[in-house]
């Protein structure tokens, strides 16, 4: 991997040697994908929406921070 970035590499790659299991899950919602942080007990919070549809970003249920139930 060759990184081409003006950011300091120490900053970008910091923690690369320690593996951390992420509690974020990718959930597919029709044509869009939600990144949801799993807070346990079937509840979560939307972290990010990945979609090409601009209208999806106006949906309050998809907004970052919205509550999500699995």
């Amino acid at each position: 991997m060759i990184l081409y970035t003006p950011m300091q590499l120490e900053l970008v790659l910091d923690g690369m040697d320690q593996y951390q299991a992420s509690n974020q899950r990718e959930i597919s919602m029709g044509s869009s994908t939600l990144i949801v942080e799993d807070n346990g007990f079937g509840r979560g919070q939307v972290v990010r929406l990945i979609s090409t549809e601009p209208q999806d970003y106006l949906n309050p249920n998809y907004a970052p921070g919205a509550e999500f139930k699995f």
Binding site: M1, L3, L11, V12, L13, S22, T52
Partner: peptide, 20 residues
């Protein structure tokens, strides 16, 4: 019109640490 957003670091074959 659909939009594609490229933000932050463009991640390649390795996952970058979570601060990115």
């Amino acid at each position: 019109i659909q939009c594609v957003t490229i933000i932050g670091q463009v991640e390649g074959h390795l996952s970058l640490p979570p601060q990115n």
